[in-house]
């Protein structure tokens, strides 16, 4: 079963006046354990497609099925709940909560899910140790480097045990070393634990590591390259 499936997907702005096709008839599937990226020039519809897949936006036409469920027809409240249970997000600007520690930022999502304290502590602590932040559990975001913050963001996305992680330009604000470390970490999570990653990126370092590269141009699917 595909973890993500879109069919005849459109996102059209100003439909009644001068229509702008941000996403134009895209039908695509992503399978579990993929490490894929969506690339394309600015304005090609990468982020819009990611937002539609993530349930942050609703399509003008077409369907989005995630983990076997149509999310385009869900109410907003159900979509939020669905995102919480099934989708992890990693943002370009990390977007951690500044008043919470690294541990609390990651644990926050599990607490929203209503998970128990013991389970939360074990999972979050384990994940933070796995990404090399075992000694930074009590550090607030302002005390962490950009790379460390983005790792916490990845742990936050992983903590809820999602079906896949959507990462929007995750390396854009990182220096080369931090970007490589982060990508190595995500690649390792993908290969060893089967975590599905879907990136939107311009970064060649991400593209080089991806097993599948989907290229968008003007909102349409230009190419879909599977690599070994």
């Amino acid at each position: 079963m595909h973890v993500i499936e879109t069919s005849g997907l459109y996102k059209i702005y100003n439909e009644d006046t001068v229509p702008v096709y941000a996403v134009n008839d895209i039908s695509i599937q992503f399978d579990p354990k993929e490490f894929s990226c969506i690339i394309g020039p600015s304005g090609s519809g990468k982020s819009t497609l990611l937002n539609l897949i993530g349930g942050l936006d609703t399509p003008s036409r077409g369907t989005v099925t995630v983990a076997g469920k149509r999310i385009d027809t869900m109410s907003e409240s159900n979509r939020i709940r669905f995102r919480l249970e099934h989708i992890g997000f990693v943002f370009q600007h990390y977007n951690l909560i500044p008043v919470l520690t690294a541990y609390e930022n990651a644990a926050f999502i599990m607490q929203l899910q209503g998970r128990g304290e013991k389970e939360t502590r074990e999972r979050v602590t384990g994940l933070l140790e796995q990404v090399g932040l075992g000694n930074r559990l009590n550090s607030r975001p302002a005390e962490l480097s950009g790379g460390e913050q983005q790792r916490v963001a990845v742990v936050r996305a992983l903590a809820s045990k999602p079906d896949f992680i959507l990462a929007d330009e995750p390396t854009a604000n990182l220096d080369t070393k931090a970007a490589f470390n982060l990508l190595d970490m995500m690649k390792q999570l993908n290969e060893e634990e089967g975590i599905t990653f879907l990136f939107s990126t311009h970064d060649q370092r991400v593209i080089d590591r991806a097993k599948r590269v989907v290229t968008l141009v003007d909102g349409t699917l230009h190419s879909d390259e599977h690599r070994k």
Binding site: I80, R81, R83, L84, L112
Partner: peptide
């Protein structure tokens, strides 16, 4: 922005 992010990652608006 923070509100938007929190809702994005799954926090219900009422919470």
């Amino acid at each position: 922005k923070e509100f938007g992010v929190l809702i994005s990652v799954g926090m219900q608006r009422h919470k």
